[in-house]
């Protein structure tokens, strides 16, 4: 694990170190972009920044970090207006909703409306900041970063034929229920059924100790695959969940990389934040350089998914990935020296 972390750090440093090195023709006037961040400089922001460097587009970035403090966002709106920037970049659901407003509650007094804006890392932009993914209908556009459920289902099915997909969920979370419903609908279309088990609640709180039992129940129900949706509680208890699945010989698929890289999920699919940041910058380029109206730019996710396969788990289960998937995937194999 530590080696992997080291690698990621090295990559980050590499990424951060270079932009200044790009020789560019002296720009007439750089575009001024106001970057409003939620929890500091991370990979999406880096991808956003690198894109301009790589494409030789002169930009002046005004970076502001809210440090997870909602109260600061009001000042950001005022500052962006005062500086009269060319574009605003918002990171995360909170920053985006506070600075740009939900699509049905835009208040020109509180929200930025006259400056074009792009958003990234918003979990549910549809029905939130935008009414439709094909167009925001206003002066903003952006990217999604969660792998769509259809893509997840396809990925699982590309590994091996699927007839019964198991999922453990937290009954308290409305989001989880919506996600499960969605996955069930996809199953109906593509020919698998969804087995669900809710984690036991103790004093109104989910009990981690019950997870292993739920997995065993799913095993008895005859599932081919365990599906691990993006969820804070499951993420915290990922060792319990993936460990139980491995013990029972159930392959598991996780949305997100933690369960694969730092636990025992068999494989996972994720959009890298860096790529999402680049895609967001691409949309910014359309607005700034090519003068496309933000409302005319669809909100979408990167085209290429990062697939991560946990090789030790694969070997223990003896359920091997097809060659094509293996060719596309990054393989995590600590015994062989990390990610390949």
């Amino acid at each position: 694990m530590r080696r992997l972390a080291g690698l990621v750090l090295a990559l980050l440093m590499l990424a951060g170190g270079s932009p200044a090195a790009v020789a560019a023709d002296p720009p007439a006037k750089p575009f001024r972009i106001y970057m409003a961040l939620w929890r500091g400089w991370e990979e999406a922001a880096q991808g956003f920044k690198d894109y301009f460097a790589n494409q030789d587009i002169p930009v002046e970035l005004i970076v502001r970090d809210a440090g997870q403090d909602k109260a600061k966002l009001k000042d950001f709106v005022a500052e962006a207006r005062r500086l009269n920037v060319d574009l605003v970049f918002t990171w995360g659901t909170t920053v985006t909703e506070e600075m740009l407003g939900r699509h049905d509650a835009v208040d020109p007094a509180r929200h930025i409306t006259d400056i074009p804006a792009v958003f990234a890392i918003v979990s549910q932009p549809l029905g939130g900041v935008v009414p439709s993914l094909s167009s925001s209908g206003r002066n903003i556009t952006g990217t999604t970063y969660l792998v769509p459920p259809e893509t997840q289902a396809n990925l699982i099915q590309s590994y091996r034929p699927l007839s019964r997909l198991g999922v453990v969920y937290i009954p308290l979370e409305r989001n989880a229920l919506v996600a499960i419903e969605e996955m069930g609908a996809i199953g109906e279309k593509s020919g698998f059924t969804l087995e669900t088990r809710a984690v036991d609640l103790v004093d109104g709180k989910p009990n981690p100790a019950s997870i292993a039992g739920k997995v065993a129940e799913l095993k008895t129900a005859g599932i081919d695959f365990l599906y691990i949706p993006p969820d804070t509680f499951l993420n915290v208890n990922r060792d319990l969940l993936t460990g139980a699945a491995l013990e029972l010989g159930i392959p598991s698929f996780a949305v997100g990389e933690n369960a694969v890289l730092t636990s025992k999920a068999m494989f996972g699919g994720v959009y890298r934040y860096y790529t999402v940041g680049q895609l967001t910058a691409y949309k910014a380029e359309q607005i700034l350089v090519h003068k496309v109206r933000p409302a005319d730019i669809a909100i979408d996710a990167p085209r290429r998914l990062s697939i991560i396969i946990n090789m030790p788990v694969v070997r223990r289960l003896g359920i091997y990935p097809p060659m094509k998937l293996l060719g596309l995937a990054e393989v995590f194999d600590p015994a062989e020296g990390g990610v390949k």
Binding site: V314, R315, Y320, P322, M323, K324, L325, G327, K340
Partner: peptide, 22 residues
Amino acid sequence: ASIERAVGFGIPIASLQGMEDF
């Protein structure tokens, strides 16, 4: 090279999956 990589990961050569598609 691809096959050797897969076998190198510990997949027995006879158990390689999806060779038709490959």
